[in-house]
């Protein structure tokens, strides 16, 4: 049963809510209790941009049981167009959906979309969150 954990992460998975340090401006995603840069404990909630670029990726050809019927699929580390320069944006890991896996490249621009991530079995919750599509 992952329902309580799923519910606690809704703000991040649905709305990309991150914590911006009030002292140094560093953005943590998912939010943290202590800023990893300046150790401050005060944050404001910010909503991340939904666009970014692929920093690196892998093609999953043998997936875990829950995703074994969806192979091959791409999982990428994405840098969002968020920070002061293109290299200090927030990074997150997401599946690249609706694509030919052979056409995904490092540097490809992507947009985050709302998709179903997994089901809790046949009668449990549908779990939603972000995936990325090439733009």
């Amino acid at each position: 049963m992952i329902s309580p954990r799923y519910h606690r992460e809704v703000a991040q998975r649905y709305r990309l809510e991150a914590g911006k340090c009030k002292q140094c401006g560093n953005i943590s995603f998912p939010p943290r209790l202590v800023c990893p840069k300046c150790k401050s404990k005060t944050f404001e909630t910010v909503q991340l941009s939904r666009e970014g670029k692929i920093l690196t990726f892998t093609i999953i050809r043998v997936g875990p049981d829950k995703f074994s019927k969806e192979t091959p699929y791409v999982v990428a580390i994405i840098e969002l167009f968020e920070g002061r320069s293109s290299n200090d944006g927030v990074r997150l890991t997401a599946q690249i959906t609706d694509c030919d896996v052979n056409k995904v490249e490092i540097g490809s621009k992507v947009k985050l979309v709302f998709r179903k991530i997994q089901d809790e079995g046949k009668s449990g919750l549908h779990c939603y969150g972000y995936k990325a599509v090439l733009i």
Partner: peptide, 13 residues
């Protein structure tokens, strides 16, 4: 619909 799409994801977009 894609395997990860349903009425809710379509409605959200």
């Amino acid at each position: 619909p894609g395997q990860d799409e349903d009425t809710i994801t379509i409605s959200v977009e």
